[in-house]
């Protein structure tokens, strides 16, 4: 019962946040001006034309009605049509797929690198290798991601011609964008793993695990890492928002056909139905990831289940 209650509580909170965020997004986008006026690329548009456009887009209905349509569209998947590019749903689902692919690849690669390195650094605290690992992590943290992306393009596409510079044509296209995001993620994750691991290794139950005669592998990976991972998971959830922000920039640099690129194009074309949907989806993803973090947290730590 407490577990179900916990999930229900978190789920309700998430729904509330999504409603609040989408409401704000819809409202804020309308502050940027009348889309009908902005659509008027050339001259010779009469006020009657404008009115027809507004009616066609449903803009002359009350705001809350429009919001309700948008919200129910999000739930049913009927996302309406863009101003210039037809139905939104296929556009967004393609972009979402590309973005999730990029984000997950970067995340998985960064965890594969940062966990063993962080654990190693913590176990050999103060040693030369620890110093080097920390120095590398600091270096990784100091690169602005757009700059790193451009440098990678210059080296691997322009000079060496090994990798495609832009677009998503083959798996090779994934490498540079994923590395660009992964470097920053790895640098921060490495620090979190190292610090929390140091904390955990100083705990009494680690000494007890050693006193049991367990192998160092068991002590580190069965006892210490699981305890440290609670902090890492929490941090990943918090970090996800800024990861999304970084993704938008990196997608632009590599012309990656993801949510970021879609959003920027929509802004340029003042295609606000797309913009509203893309931003809402990004927000929902962040809320969903944090909900997921709460659930993982609960699976990891029996003490949470009691609350």
């Amino acid at each position: 019962m407490p577990i179900l209650g916990y999930i229900a509580k978190r789920g309700l909170q998430a729904i509330f946040v999504v409603v609040a965020v989408t409401l704000f997004i819809s409202f804020a986008i309308r502050l940027t001006g009348d889309p009908a006026v902005m659509m008027r690329e050339s001259a010779n548009v009469t006020p009657e034309d404008l009115e027809r456009v507004r009616e066609g887009l449903g803009l002359n209905r009350p705001f809350l009605v429009q919001y309700w349509d948008f919200l129910s569209g999000l739930v049913t998947g009927d996302l309406g049509a863009s101003f210039f590019r037809g139905p939104i749903a296929p556009l967004v689902s393609d972009a979402l797929g590309a973005t999730v692919l990029l984000a997950l690849t970067s995340l998985v690669v960064s965890l594969i690198i940062s966990i063993p390195l962080g654990v190693y650094a913590a176990r050999h605290r103060g040693s030369v290798s620890d110093q080097i690992i920390r120095l590398l992590s600091l270096t990784g943290l100091s690169f602005p991601n757009f700059w790193l992306g451009i440098v990678l393009i210059l080296i691997f596409s322009v000079s060496l011609r090994w990798l495609p510079a832009s677009d998503f044509r083959s798996p090779a296209s994934l490498i540079m964008p994923a590395v660009t995001i992964g470097v920053i993620l790895t640098a921060t994750n490495l620090r979190i793993v190292r610090t929390t691991m140091l904390d955990t290794l100083n705990q009494q139950f680690i000494m007890v695990a050693r006193a049991k005669g367990l192998s160092e592998r068991s002590v580190i990976y069965k006892h210490a890492l699981r305890n440290s991972s609670i902090a890492l998971v929490t941090y990943l959830g918090l970090q996800f928002g800024s990861l999304m922000g970084g993704l938008v920039v990196v997608e632009l640099v590599f012309n990656w056909p993801g949510m970021g690129t879609l959003a920027v194009e929509a802004i340029a074309q003042r295609d606000y139905p797309i913009l509203q949907t893309v931003i809402s989806f990004l927000a929902i993803m962040i809320v969903a990831v944090n909900l997921l973090v709460d659930l993982v947290y609960m699976a990891l730590d029996p003490r949470i289940r009691l609350e």
Binding site: V208, R210, K212, S215, E216, H223, L300, R303
Partner: peptide, 28 residues
């Protein structure tokens, strides 16, 4: 060596510690 010591710990010499509150792994 460490490998040999592991066969001694708990099997031949066992230890209990001061802080029972932190001696057990909270997640197991």
């Amino acid at each position: 060596d460490e490998r040999g010591y592991r066969k001694i710990r708990s099997a031949r010499v066992a230890m209990i510690f001061q802080e029972p509150m932190t001696s057990l792994n909270p997640l197991m």
